[in-house]
């Protein structure tokens, strides 16, 4: 058996026992990441759905308005609103992910702080810093992968719920003439009748890939910070810590 394989076997044994007996800490860290990833997907889906609904409304209005000037005004207004919604969605999603990575990092660092004596003991046993780094990174990566996958599932569930409870907008294009008069005279209204616009929350594969990538990157960042702190512990100081 190769040296690498031996290392991996013991590391995974260590990981398995750690996750089994400190599952609540792993759950808290993983849940933080999962919420961030889920929010990215759900909020992005909601923004896409809003944009799609607005486009449907715009299409209806375009058909209704015979005046080019009126159509242009509505076009601009709806496009601006759509853009604002999309940007707001992106910022909310980014903020959610940053917050969740920050939470995961803090929880990982707190976990390292609780295990100072453990890492000091490992150093006393002759574990080099790189082995301790690898152990902490392995644990964080496992939690990160699980949290990210759970986040994807939650994100899909959130988008499905939004689509299910989202309102169906009815655009009454016969009323368009009153709302947007044409310049220089009474508007011409062909009178298409009401158009129903169903709200949907489509999930883009690109957004899922982005959320997964950012979630894993966040877990890696949290793990790297935790591992760095664990590896640079002074063993004499670590062993003197009570608890």
């Amino acid at each position: 058996m190769s040296r690498l394989r031996q290392d991996r076997t013991l590391r995974l044994t260590y990981l398995r026992h750690e996750l089994r007996h400190r599952w609540w800490q792993a759950l808290a860290t993983g849940a933080g990441l999962a919420v961030g990833v889920a929010l990215v997907i759900t909020v992005s889906a909601a923004a896409s759905g809003t944009r799609a609904a607005q486009n449907r409304v715009l299409d209806s209005l375009d058909h209704a308005a015979s005046s080019n000037a009126a159509a242009g005004t509505v076009d601009d207004a709806v496009a601006t609103a759509s853009g604002l919604a999309a940007h707001l969605g992106i910022w909310v999603a980014a903020a959610a992910l940053i917050a969740s990575v920050a939470v995961a990092t803090l929880l990982t660092l707190a976990s390292v702080a609780r295990r100072v004596r453990e890492f000091g003991t490992l150093k006393a046993l002759g574990w080099p810093a790189r082995r301790i780094t690898a152990q902490v990174l392995t644990e964080t990566a496992a939690i990160g992968v699980a949290g990210t996958l759970a986040g994807v599932a939650l994100g899909y569930a959130g988008a499905a719920i939004l689509a299910a409870i989202g309102p169906t907008l009815t655009v009454n294009v016969t009323g368009f003439a009153d709302a947007v008069p044409g310049p220089g005279g009474p508007p011409k209204t062909p009178g298409h009748g009401p158009v129903a616009v169903h709200f949907s929350a489509p999930i883009s594969p690109g957004i899922v890939a982005l959320a997964v990538g950012l979630g894993l990157l966040g877990a890696l960042l949290a793990g790297a910070l935790g591992a760095w702190r664990a590896a640079r512990l002074d063993p004499a100081t670590a062993l003197s810590r009570v608890g």
Binding site: M1, R3, Q6, D7, T9, L10, T13, Y14, H17, E18, R20, H21, R22, R117, E118, G120, T121, L122, A124, L125, G126, W127, P128, R131, L239
Partner: peptide, 23 residues
């Protein structure tokens, strides 16, 4: 200073981790 989450045998095995031994 035993690792609380690891069984006795794994605690002992940790001391061999840095050495070149097969499983």
């Amino acid at each position: 200073n035993l690792i609380p989450t690891l069984p006795a045998a794994v605690n002992v095995e940790l001391a061999l981790a840095p050495l070149r031994l097969d499983a």
